[in-house]
Structure formats: C-alpha cells, structure tokens
Amino acid sequence: MDDSQGTLSLVLFSGTDDKLSSASILTAGAAALGRKVNLFLQYWALENFQKDRIAKDHGVSKDAEPEGASLMRLMREQGSTQHWADTFRQAKEIGDVHLYACALSMEMFGITKDDLDPLIDGVWGVASFMLEADGPVVFI
C-alpha cells in the first residue's frame, strides 16, 4: 500500500449525523487512495458509536437546523447516500483504517469496550493517538 501521503488523523468530537457522515466520506476517500487513517473518538461522537445507538437518528449540527435534518433524511431515502456507519465499514474493508475510543471519554460516559460497535479497534489515550499522527490533526 502506498503510504507516501502519510496518515490522515481525524478526531471525531461531534455526534450528529451530518458531521459523522462528513468524517466517514473523508475516511473512505483517503482509504481508497491508499492512505492510512486513524480516528480518535471522543465525547458525543463516541457516545453514538455504542452498539445500541449507532443505527439511531442523531440529528444534524445546530448550524444546519431546521432544513438540514429533513434534507439528510430525504437524501438517504433516495438511496444516493448511505448511513455513515456503513461508509466507515467499507473504508475499513478497502484500506488501512483504525478507529480508537478515547479512554477519558469512555470513563466520563461510563462506556465499556463491550458497549461499542465492532468498528472500534481499541481504546487509546491522547498520547497514543498523537504518537501515530505524523501530520496535522483534523477535528470534526
């Protein structure tokens, strides 16, 4: 695999469907181009990667209300886009993509590894994530 463009390092903080969709598309695009992708999941993003929440409707960010939510629902119903969890799954199938849960957020929200969707590869502290980030870190 060509790793000449370095690792894409994404921090997922927001838990709304628009931001998670955007992050999943960036991830899939980078994976398709052969780039390694590491994602570090914190706060509201991590909350929505729990098995019992991942498939639910997580709304859109405040700056997209009120039209944003209905627009996203319409796009999904038309079948031209898919759920972000499926896009992350495909990104992992085609490339070198790893998702890590933030240890501190796990503790804050009382989440255990068993609560998380199998998309999550492990639990990391911020130092582990930064050690692997060989370039800029994108915060979503």
Partner: peptide, 17 residues
C-alpha cells in the same frame, strides 16, 4: 449509476481487489 461520493471510488476500490 445514481450513487454519490464517495461510493463510486469505494466500490471501485473493493471491485479491483
């Protein structure tokens, strides 16, 4: 046909494997 970004590239990357 009918699929939007990033699906055309993602499905191509899967198919070429």
């Amino acid at each position: 046909k009918g699929l939007n970004c990033p699906l055309p590239i993602v499905k191509t990357a899967q198919a070429i494997k």
